[in-house]
Nucleic acid binder design. Structure first.
Length: 956
DNA sequence: GGCCGAACGTA
DNA sequence: GTACGTTCGGCCC
C-alpha cells in the first residue's frame, strides 16, 4: 500500500537571506563566513528528522534562483532593478548552499530564466495533481498565493493540497494564517500584492497604496479588476485619481506577481523521493565547516537524520509514529501557558447600540479571526430561539450582544438592545466573509441557529473538534477526557468557567437565557467566547506538531457544514402509523401483563429487574439465578432464555413484554414527540466527538439505533418515509470492518475472498472447520466478529456456548489459518503500549492511557479497545470522507435535489425525487466505494449495497 | 431533581 | 469481546 506522498519544496534563495540577517556571523576553520550556511544546514537537518513522520516529507527538493534575470525582465525591464547588492560576507556563502544541499544528498533545482518561486509553483501544481500534499518551506509572501490550493480530483485521484512552513518561526502557514496576514484568502493575495507593489522587487503597484489600502480595496470590491473598474465611481480623493491613472501599472504588477505554474520541470518529481539521509557526504561537509555539534549527533546521538534509515515502514500505521517512546498518557503535550492576562469578566462589554456593534464588527474584521458563541433558549438547535451572540477578538476582548432578552413578562421593562433584524444584517457580512475565520466551541450548533436566520457562517474552526483530533481518549485519573468547554478551560487554561447552571439554574426553577439580566448574561456569554478564543490559539498550533492536521483539515473540519445540513434537513416520519403501532404494542403489553401476573400469582413491576429477580428466583424458585456485583439477580436476555429452556413460560412472556415496552417507549412514543412542529420532521443531533474511535453519535433522538433485526422492530423503519414524489435511498458498506481487517492485517485468503465476492463467513468456516454448513458458518461469523472486538477465550466461549479451553483452541486454530491477524494484534498492541495511542489508516489517533495499567481487567479492556479502534476508526474515516465528497459529486452529476439525511456508521440515507433514483445510485456508489482513495489504496474492494423505496424499511 | 446500574436498540 | 444513547426503576438528597 502506498501511503500519502508529501513533497517539501525548500525555497533556498529566500531562506539564505533571512538566515543571514537573523544569525550571528560565523566562520569556518578556513576563515570563510558560514553563518547563513549553518542556519540553512540546521533547517535541512530538522526537515530530515521529520522524514516519513505524519505530515513530514516523503519527497524533498531545494529550489534556487539560477540568476537574477528572468522572463519578468522581458515584460518589465525595471523588475528587481533596484536590488542592492548582497552583503559581501554573504556572497561567498551562495555556492556553499548548493554544497550543503548536495551533502544531504538532496536534489537542488534551478533553471535559468525562471525564479525559484515559479519552479516551486510548477512543481507544487504537478505534485498536487498527482494527489500528493505539498509543503513549501519559505515565508515569502508571494508564495502565499499558493497556500490552500488543492488540485481538483480527476481520474479517481483526490488532489493534494499546498501549505507552507516557516521554519524560523516554526509555524505552519495555512489559509487562516494567510487571511490573518493579508485579510483576503490566498487566491486573492496576488491582487493585493499587485496594488501595493514591492519596492525590493521593484514591482510598481499603485503609488500611495500600501498593504492596508490594498487589502481594503480587494475586500470591498472582490478583485483587482473590479476595484479598478469601480474607481471612477469612488468618492473623489487622491486614491481615486491614482487608481484611475495607474490602472495599467497595477495590471502589469499583477502579471509580475503572478507565479508561472507551467514551467518545464528540470527533474521528474519521482526523483525527489527520500527514504533516509546517507551519512556521507554529510559527515565530511559538517567536518569541513566546523559544524561539530551536528557532526556529533550524526555520529551516534539521537535524533540525527541517520535514524531515518531504521524508519522504513511498510504501512502508514507505523509510519506516522512519533519516536517519543514512553507512555503517551503522561506525555500529554501541553503548550506552555501563553502570557495572557487572567480572565477578567468585568472587562467584557455589553453591546446595546448600533455604534458599539459596528465597532466590534470592525475589530473582528481587522483581527481576521473571531470567536463566536450564540446563546439561545434551548439545546435543540432546530427549535431554540436566539437570545444573543458573543464575540471575542483577543484575551479579555470580548462582548455580548443581547438580541432576545426580556419580553416574557409584559410588565417588566425590556432592556435596551439592538433590534435583532438590524443586528443580524450588520453581522451577516462578517459571519459570511471568507476573510474572517469564525471560531466556535461546537460551532455546528451556532451554524444551525444562524442558518435559521439566513446567515451561512463560513469559514469555521472548532475548538471541540481540534481537541478531539488531538486528544481523543486521553484522560488521566482525576482529569476528564471530554471535549466540552468547561473541561477544556480547566485542562488547558486552568480556569473554572461560569456554568450554564450557575446562570440559569436547573430543573423546574431554570430560566431561559433570554430572562437572565444583561450584566450576568454578558459575564457568562462573553467568557465563553473569550475562552474559545484562548483555546483556539492554544490548541490549533498543536495539530501540525502532533500530526493531527490531516485528519482535522481533510476529514473532520469539512464535515461540520455537511453534518449541520443533514441535521437541518431532518427526516419525515409517519405520525399516524407510529401512533397505530404504539396502541398495538400497548394492547399486547397489557395482555402479557395480565398473563404474567396470573402465572406468578401477584402484581409487580415487570420493568424492575430487582422485583423480577426476586419473583423468579425466590418466590418461584427457578434455578440458574446469578447475582451481580450489586447483589441483584441478573435477569437479562440470556438468563431469561435459559429459564425458558427449562420450560418457564413466564420467562418467554417477560422477554416479549420487554421487547414491546422498549419499542413503545423508546421508539413509537418518543419519535412522535420528536417531530418538530415547524418543519414536521425529526431532526437528530450528531456529535462529531461522540465516540473515541472517530465515529459519529446521534442524540435527541438517537436515529442510529432504530430497530431492524426483528420483524416487529422493523415496522418502525417503515415509519420513516419520503415526501410525496420522493423516495428514500439507503446505501451501506457491506462487511466494511472485516474488509479493513483483511487489508490491515494483510490476510491473503480473506483478501482473495473479498476480491472474488465470496461469502466471507463461509470462507472462514471452510478454513477453520474444513466444511460449510449452517452451524459452522454461524460459528465462523461469531469468531470473525470476536476478532474485530479484541478476542478473549472467555468472551468467545460465552458467545459460542463452549468452555474457555475449547474457545482458546478455536482462537489458536484461527491464528494458525490467518497468521496475519495474530501479527496485526501483536504489532498494534506493541505500538499502543509504546506510544500510548492507536492510529487509523488516515492518521486519526485514539489514546489508551490505561493500556499499561497494573490492574489486569483495566489493562485487558484497553487492549481489546485498542485492537478494535484502528479498524472501527478507519471505517469511520472512510464514510466521513464519502460524506464530504458526496455533495459536490452529486451537484456535478446534476443531482442537486438529492439530500443526504442520515448516517448510521456504515450506511447513508438519502431523500431524492423518485425520478433521480436510477441516476443517483451509481454516483453514490462510486463516491462511497472510492472514499479511501487516493490517501489509502486498499487491497480489498469496498462493496456498497443500495436500495430505495417509499420508506427506510423498504429501502433495505 | 439528579445520578447510577440494568437492560437493550444499533453498527 | 468493540463503539454508542435511551429508558426505566431505585435510591439519594
Amino acid at each position: 500500500m502506498d501511503s500519502k506522498q508529501h513533497l517539501y519544496l525548500v525555497d533556498g534563495s529566500a531562506y539564505i537571506f533571512r538566515a543571514y540577517h537573523r544569525l550571528p556571523p560565523l566562520t569556518n576553520p578556513e576563515g570563510t563566513p558560514v553563518g547563513a550556511v549553518y542556519g540553512y544546514t540546521t533547517m535541512l537537518w530538522k526537515l530530515a528528522e521529520d522524514l516519513n513522520k505524519a505530515d513530514g516529507p516523503t519527497h524533498l527538493a531545494v529550489i534556487l534562483d539560477a540568476s537574477s534575470i528572468s522572463f519578468r525582465n522581458d515584460i518589465y525591464d525595471q523588475y528587481k532593478a533596484n536590488r542592492p547588492p548582497p552583503p559581501e560576507d554573504l556572497v561567498p556563502q551562495f555556492p556553499l548552499i548548493r554544497e550543503a544541499t548536495r551533502a544531504f544528498s538532496l536534489p537542488c533545482i534551478e533553471e535559468v530564466g525562471f525564479e525559484a518561486d515559479d519552479l516551486i509553483a510548477s512543481y507544487a501544481r504537478e505534485a498536487t495533481r498527482r494527489g500528493w500534499d505539498v509543503t513549501i518551506v519559505s515565508s515569502d509572501k508571494d508564495l502565499m498565493q499558493l497556500v490552500g490550493k488543492c488540485a481538483q480530483p480527476h481520474d479517481g485521484i483526490e488532489g493534494g493540497c499546498i501549505d507552507m512552513l516557516d521554519t524560523m518561526k516554526n509555524q505552519r502557514i495555512d489559509i487562516p494564517e494567510v487571511i490573518e496576514k493579508f485579510g483576503v484568502p490566498p487566491e486573492k493575495v496576488g491582487d493585493v500584492l499587485a496594488l501595493m507593489g514591492d519596492s525590493v522587487d521593484n514591482v510598481p503597484g499603485v503609488f500611495g497604496v500600501g498593504p492596508k489600502t490594498a487589502t481594503k480595496l480587494i475586500q470591498d470590491y472582490g478583485d483587482l479588476e473590479s476595484a479598478l473598474a469601480a474607481a471612477p465611481s469612488m468618492k473623489k480623493s487622491k486614491l481615486q485619481e491614482r487608481l484611475i491613472e495607474q490602472a495599467e501599472q497595477a495590471r502589469l504588477s499583477k502579471v509580475l506577481v503572478t507565479l508561472k505554474e507551467d514551467c518545464t520541470l528540470p527533474m521528474p518529481l519521482d526523483e525527489f523521493r527520500l527514504d533516509a539521509i546517507p551519512s556521507e557526504p554529510l559527515a565530511a561537509f559538517l567536518g569541513r565547516h566546523g559544524f561539530t555539534s551536528l557532526l556529533k549527533r550524526l555520529d551516534g546521538g539521537t535524533g540525527s537524520p541517520e535514524r531515518a534509515t531504521q524508519l522504513n515502514p511498510a504501512k502508514r500505521v507505523t509510519a506516522a509514529a512519533e519516536g517519543t517512546g514512553g507512555s503517551g498518557a503522561e506525555g500529554a503535550a501541553r503548550q506552555p501557558l501563553p502570557e495572557w492576562p487572567a480572565i477578567d469578566r468585568t472587562a467584557y462589554e455589553c453591546v446595546t447600540t448600533e455604534a458599539q456593534l459596528d465597532e466590534w464588527i470592525a475589530r473582528a474584521a481587522a483581527a481576521r479571526l473571531v470567536a463566536i458563541d450564540t446563546e439561545t433558549s434551548a439545546l435543540d438547535a432546530m427549535r431554540a430561539e436566539l437570545a444573543g451572540i458573543s464575540l471575542a477578538v483577543g484575551p479579555n476582548q470580548a462582548c455580548y450582544i443581547p438580541l432576545g432578552h426580556g419580553g416574557s413578562d409584559m410588565f417588566a421593562e425590556k432592556p435596551q438592545q439592538v433590534p435583532i433584524a438590524q443586528a443580524l444584517a450588520r453581522l451577516k457580512p462578517l459571519l459570511e466573509s471568507d476573510a474572517v475565520l469564525k471560531v466556535g466551541q461546537n460551532i455546528k450548533y451556532d451554524i444551525n441557529i444562524l442558518a435559521r436566520h439566513g446567515i451561512h457562517v463560513a469559514p469555521v474552526d472548532d475548538t471541540m473538534i481540534v481537541s478531539f483530533c488531538l486528544d481523543a481518549g486521553r484522560s488521566l485519573d482525576g482529569i476528564g477526557g471530554g471535549h466540552g468547554m468547561d473541561e477544556l478551560a480547566q485542562r488547558h487554561l486552568s480556569h473554572t468557567t461560569l456554568t450554564f447552571k450557575d446562570i440559569c439554574g436547573t430543573g423546574k426553577k431554570a430560566i431561559p437565557f433570554g430572562e437572565v439580566p444583561l450584566d450576568r448574561a454578558t459575564q457568562y456569554a462573553a467568557e465563553d467566547a473569550d475562552v474559545t478564543w484562548r483555546l483556539h490559539s492554544q490548541l490549533r498550533p498543536r495539530l501540525s506538531f502532533e500530526g493531527g492536521t490531516r485528519i482535522y483539515e481533510r476529514v473532520d473540519r469539512p464535515l461540520i457544514p455537511v453534518v449541520a445540513q443533514m441535521e437541518r434537513h431532518g427526516i419525515k416520519v409517519d405520525r399516524d402509523r407510529l401512533a397505530g403501532l404504539s396502541s398495538q404494542f400497548a394492547e399486547a403489553i397489557g395482555a402479557l401483563e395480565r398473563e404474567i401476573f396470573a402465572k406468578v400469582g401477584q402484581e409487580f413491576t415487570i420493568g424492575s429487574p430487582k422485583q423480577l429477580g426476586d419473583i423468579l428466583f425466590e418466590k418461584l424458585g427457578y434455578k440458574g439465578g446469578k447475582k451481580g456485583k450489586s447483589g441483584q439477580y441478573s435477569t437479562d436476555q440470556s438468563v431469561l432464555e435459559g429459564l425458558a429452556g427449562q420450560g418457564a413460560e413466564v420467562a418467554t412472556q417477560v422477554l416479549e413484554w420487554r421487547q414491546l415496552s422498549k419499542l413503545r417507549s423508546t421508539y413509537t412514543e418518543a419519535l412522535q414527540a420528536a417531530i418538530n412542529p415547524a418543519t414536521g420532521r425529526v431532526h437528530t443531533s450528531y456529535s462529531l466527538v461522540g465516540a473515541q474511535t472517530g465515529r459519529l453519535s446521534s442524540t435527541d433522538p438517537n436515529l442510529q439505533n432504530i430497530p431492524i433485526r426483528t420483524e416487529i422492530g422493523r415496522q418502525i423503519r417503515d415509519c420513516f418515509v419520503a415526501e410525496p414524489g420522493n423516495v428514500l435511498l439507503s446505501a451501506d458498506y457491506s462487511q466494511i470492518e472485516l474488509r479493513l481487517a483483511a487489508h490491515m492485517a494483510d490476510v491473503p485468503s480473506l483478501k482473495e475472498a473479498f476480491a472474488s465476492g465470496e461469502d466471507i463467513h463461509s470462507r472462514t468456516a471452510m478454513e477453520m472447520f474444513g466444511t460449510v454448513d449452517r452451524d459452522t458458518r454461524g460459528r465462523a461469523k461469531t469468531i470473525n466478529f470476536a476478532i474485530l472486538y479484541g478476542i478473549s477465550r472467555w468472551g468467545l466461549g460465552g458467545r459460542l456456548g463452549v468452555g474457555a479451553d475449547e474457545a482458546q483452541a478455536m482462537i489458536d486454530r484461527y491464528f494458525e489459518r490467518f497468521p496475519g491477524i495474530q501479527r496485526y494484534i501483536h504489532e498494534t498492541l506493541e505500538s499502543v503500549r509504546a506510544k500510548g495511542y492507536s492510529e487509523t489508516l488516515f492518521g486519526r489517533k485514539t489514546w489508551f492511557p490505561r493500556v499499561n495499567s497494573k490492574n489486569q481487567a483495566e489493562r485487558q479492556g484497553s487492549e481489546r479497545a485498542a485492537i478494535n479502534a484502528p479498524i472501527q476508526g478507519t471505517s469511520a474515516d472512510i464514510i466521513k470522507r464519502a460524506m464530504v465528497r458526496m455533495g459536490p459529486a452529486l451537484a456535478t452529476a446534476g443531482l442537486g435535489h438529492v439530500r443526504m439525511l442520515l448516517q448510521v456508521h456504515d450506511e447513508l440515507v438519502f431523500e431524492l425525487p423518485e425520478s433521480d433514483a436510477q441516476a443517483a445510485a451509481p454516483v453514490i456508489r462510486q463516491v462511497m466505494a472510492e472514499a479511501a482513495l487516493p490517501a489509502v489504496s486498499l487491497d480489498v474492494p469496498l462493496g456498497v449495497e443500495i436500495g430505495f423505496g417509499a420508506s427506510w424499511g423498504a429501502a433495505h
